[in-house]
């Protein structure tokens, strides 16, 4: 909390900010509404809703907090917005039907999954050009980057693999088979574990990316909720706390977020959120986790320490992705 207010105060001193000084902005892409909703993380009020192109899904913010990147899937492009003015600045060549991407820690590259073309497209955010197209499995979807930026991970939904793409030469160096329809990948901040969620398989695969003989599947986490049919426990979006203690997994149509102890890999709790919970993001200090709930048109705010849902906020139609500005 101290860190965030300090950073915001500096920011206040150097710019003329109209919004409350302590707040971060939460950007939510509304897949059906074709809009981006902006929420103030201090008041949890919606402060703006602006057009996001056709079928906005994957969403992310540059490390410096200036640019908002939105996959406009039906426009075959990534739109870039100013996080202050919400003006659309330019577009990036994304390849067809971009769905999800991950950002290089330097902010220089986006790694974009092109669902239709079995490709991962690497885009230089400065020159706005395509640097590489990497053939991967069928229906690429989930994207992650290792903390040391050595590998980009892509998951392919019909091939059911996590592909390890070397960021130096854009070659696939390892492939790991996981359960059906892998949707999302995320590393722990220390780079010691990689999690891959399989929507239809109903599991999260735990991969040791640093194993002696190359990345290795070490275990699988499965889910069980009394009174919920097992087939609706469909893991999708994930986030790990920076202290590497807690993994949060959105369970789609089960309307819950699972809380997993990263050390023991046990599910310790299920937090009830809105309907068809999809993607999630932390506020910068990780006090809060925001979930998008596609079928109830709202987002849920989870208090990370207490592992409780504290608020839901109505957004646009079918919220899909969420990204929070850094301090």
């Amino acid at each position: 909390m101290f860190k965030s207010s300090f950073a915001a105060a500096i920011c206040f001193a150097c710019t003329t900010l109209a919004s409350p000084a302590l707040a971060n902005k939460v950007f939510v892409s509304n897949e059906r509404g074709n809009t981006i909703t902006v929420i103030d993380s201090d008041t949890w009020e919606v402060i703006e809703e602006f057009p996001g192109g056709n079928r906005p899904r994957g969403i992310g913010i540059s490390p410096d907090g200036k640019f908002l990147y939105v996959c406009s899937s039906d426009d075959d492009t990534v739109r870039v917005f100013d996080t202050e003015t919400y003006a659309e600045l330019w577009t990036l060549p994304s390849g067809p039907d971009p769905e999800l991407f991950t950002i290089h820690p330097s902010g220089d590259y986006l790694y974009i999954a092109n669902e239709d073309d079995n490709l991962v497209t690497v885009v230089d955010t400065q020159s706005r050009t395509v640097v590489a197209e990497i053939p991967v499995g069928v229906e690429p979807e989930g994207m992650a980057i290792s903390p040391d930026a050595a590998f980009v991970i892509n998951t392919s939904e019909t091939t059911n693999m996590a592909h390890f793409i070397d960021t130096a030469d854009y070659q696939i160096k390892h492939n790991i088979l996981v359960d059906q329809r892998p949707r999302y990948a995320v590393y722990t901040d220390d780079g010691s574990k990689l999690f891959v969620s399989s929507e239809i398989g109903g599991t999260v695969s735990v991969i040791d990316p640093l194993a002696a003989n190359g990345p290795e599947l070490t275990s699988k986490i499965s889910f069980e909720v009394a009174g919920v049919q097992p087939e609706w426990l469909q893991p999708v979006g994930m986030r790990v706390t920076a202290d590497n203690k807690w993994l949060f997994v959105a369970l789609g149509p089960a309307n819950r977020v699972a809380v997993i102890d990263v050390e023991t890999l046990e599910v310790v709790d299920y937090i009830l959120v809105g309907q068809r919970v999809w993607q999630m993001d932390f506020t910068p200090g990780q006090e809060f986790l925001i979930t998008t709930n596609g079928n109830s048109n709202d987002v849920t705010v989870i208090d990370v320490d207490r592992q409780q849902a504290i608020k839901s906020i109505q957004v646009g139609e079918q919220p899909w992705g969420v990204a929070v500005t850094p301090d």
Partner: peptide, 15 residues
Amino acid sequence: ARFVTSIACLIGTAI
């Protein structure tokens, strides 16, 4: 064309 790129990609794959 896609098949060719896939094969090329296989060569670089350390499986």
